[in-house]
Amino acid sequence: MSTSDTHSGRDWLEAELADSLDEDYELELSEPALSMEIRKIYKTAHPPSIDRVAYFRHLLALQSELIKLQSWVSHAGAKIVVIFEGRDSAGKGGVIKRITQRLNPRVCRVAALPAPTERERTQWYFQRYTAHLPAGGEIVLFDRSWYNRAGVERVMGFATPQQVEDFFRDAPGFERMLVRSGIILIKYWFSITDEEQQMRFLMRIHDPMKQWKLSPMDLQSRVRWEDYTKAKEEMLARTNIAEAPWFIVEANDKKRARLNCLDHLLQQIPYTEVPHEEVTLPDRVFNPNYDRQVLPSEIYVPSKY
């Protein structure tokens, strides 16, 4: 690598770092209604997290590797599925956002399925998930997955004991079929403590910008904490197969959880650097007879800011 390449890489990193810090400050400032008392309690309950600047330096380095992974996936025609499971407010969405943030949505997409329709309830259980599986050259991130049956559906009584038992018998075979078809399947469980979930729920309740994240089902998960714990333990025990093992992300510290998960994800995939042709900007073609049309002012968005 030439000195100029090193300098340009460093300049890019510094520019992105400044940009990311600005975004982070903006998110903090966008929470004026957040109870200062709850924020104070939340900070007291947590040991110091990783320094903000160090966090973004690590995050940007990992995201640059994700771009290399994306190039390899497209070049090799690889098929990758990553499942994100965990309790409500465990931080799954935050990690998914950091993965997709700098990637091409045509290569890396998120599957976050709503509750099944009446028609879907009559289908083979895995059917609605198979429609979202990747073709060659694609990465699919499942923000919750077919494991709903072993978790929320089981605990809330949306599935019968027999349906749950059928799921435990079928899921390992289903996943082995996916792996045999050439899909790289990676499964994450995000683990937080009882106290941490309670604190995060309180933060959401007192923040109008985040209240939309709390559904009646989420609130029920507080009531049924122990039921979810038992369901999770059986799920991990019965579906942890060699072809697609579970990986647990300790997620009480959001920043460390994001970095650890991204770093681990990159290690699970045998990607390599893909050679790229140098991109050069072509010269603009000028037509001396072309006059730019003057458009009516009313079609422009007002410049308020």
Rank of each mutant, 00 (worst) to 15 (best):
T239H: 07
R102D: 11
G173P: 04
E23F: 13
E165M: 07
T160L: 13
S74E: 15
V279D: 14
L62F: 05
A135Y: 08
E120M: 01
M156C: 09
L259E: 00
L214N: 01
V223K: 13
L141Y: 02
Q268I: 02
E118W: 04
S221W: 05
D253F: 03
L13H: 15
D19A: 14
I67C: 11
W124G: 05
Q197F: 01
A159F: 04
P116A: 11
V155N: 01
L34I: 05
N148R: 10
I99T: 00
G136Q: 13
T130S: 14
D218P: 04
V107W: 06
I248H: 05
K79P: 08
V95C: 02
Y147D: 06
S74L: 13
G137V: 01
Y188W: 07
E196S: 02
W124T: 09
L265K: 07
R109G: 05
Y300V: 03
Q70S: 06
P216L: 02
P48K: 07
E31H: 15
Y125C: 00
A257Q: 00
E138G: 00
S30P: 06
R98M: 10
E165L: 06
L13D: 11
I269T: 12
S303V: 11
S74K: 15
H75A: 15
K230H: 13
D283P: 10
Q293G: 02
A244R: 05
L185H: 06
L265F: 06
M217E: 03
E23G: 13
W225H: 06
Y147C: 01
P275Y: 07
A135I: 09
R169E: 14
S2I: 11
M177S: 10
D263C: 12
K43P: 02
K79E: 03
G77Y: 06
S221M: 08
P134D: 03
V294P: 03
P245R: 11
K187C: 00
D207H: 05
V73Y: 02
I192Y: 01
V95A: 09
I67P: 00
P114C: 08
Q163T: 13
W146S: 01
L34Y: 07
G173W: 08
S35A: 13
E65G: 09
K40A: 14
R204H: 05
P270E: 01
W124D: 10
L103W: 01
S297P: 06
H132R: 15
V152F: 05
F167A: 12
S181E: 10
V249A: 11
A33D: 15
G137I: 09
R10E: 15
N289P: 06
G157K: 02
L295Y: 13
Q163C: 12
D253G: 04
Y147K: 05
H46M: 14
E85V: 06
M217A: 12
G137C: 02
G86Y: 03
V110L: 05
S2T: 15
G86L: 04
T272V: 12
E273F: 08
I248S: 07
Q197A: 03
D170L: 12
E250F: 00
N287H: 13
Y300P: 04
M235H: 10
R154Q: 10
K213D: 03
K97L: 10
D253T: 03
L219E: 10
T130H: 10
R149M: 04
D166R: 11
E165N: 14
Q70W: 04
Q70T: 08
I186F: 07
T239M: 04
R119E: 15
I205C: 02
G77Q: 08
M209N: 09
D283M: 09
